[in-house]
Amino acid sequence: MTGIGPVEPGADTRVRKAPPPRPRGRLARYCERHRRTLLASAAALVVLAGGGYLYASRPQPRPAPAPPYPSQAVDLVYGAPATGSPGATSGAYSFTVLLSVRSGPPVTVTRLTQPYDGLSVTSSPAAPFQTKSHSTRKIIVTLRVTECEKAPRNPGLPFLDVTLRNARAIEAHSFILGARYAQDLSRALQVACSNDSR
């Protein structure tokens, strides 16, 4: 038997690949010419869109808690009668109070008053003054009798009106200084008004 090998192609029998059809229209020709640039631009847009989505959907940080209202962060405590304080003359009663700021931002005392028409009030340091957080400030308050007829003879629960300001709010708050303050104030008013004909 004679060996027959594989059939070999003859001339012009190989299949030729036809060139791809040329795009029609201006836009198609432009896209064909700049295919790499357009693909790179499309990839960049996809990356940017993905990054924008990730940025927009990231977890938001929690806002910092608001500082406390000034009246919630401050203590005002009666100290004792002040002897030899400036302005402590006849008809005046000076005493110390301790103002403590427990937490939050610094607190400014913008005004210090009392409720009785027959008395005026001054303080050292004079308002406005500021007290830092986690600190205590000693204040000397002087009550001066202006009219004995309008001054209380036996105040039961006398208080001081203090206007406080911090980064959150401005508040007017009344502080009751306790029974010891009431007794000391009552004695001082009796001495100041003892010569009154009332």
Rank of each mutant, 00 (worst) to 15 (best):
R180P: 03
P81K: 03
G79K: 13
G50Y: 06
V145P: 00
V145E: 01
S94K: 08
A28M: 08
V15E: 09
F95A: 04
L112V: 12
T146P: 01
P20Y: 00
S41M: 13
P115E: 03
A151G: 02
A167I: 07
C193T: 10
Q183H: 13
H173C: 00
T13H: 07
L112Y: 06
H34K: 13
P155Y: 03
L185C: 09
A56H: 12
P6S: 11
G91V: 08
P61S: 09
P115K: 07
P158H: 06
E171Q: 11
T2R: 14
S90G: 13
V191D: 06
P128S: 04
A167W: 04
R22F: 00
V121C: 05
P59H: 12
L164S: 04
N154D: 11
T37Q: 11
P61F: 00
A188F: 06
L185W: 06
R165S: 10
R62K: 14
L48P: 01
S90F: 12
D12V: 05
S197N: 14
A80P: 01
A192I: 08
R14F: 10
T146C: 04
A44Q: 09
G10E: 08
V47Q: 06
L143M: 11
S197Y: 07
E147F: 04
I140D: 08
S194G: 07
R35V: 14
S133G: 14
P61E: 05
R180E: 13
V109F: 02
R29T: 13
F175E: 01
V77C: 05
S194N: 14
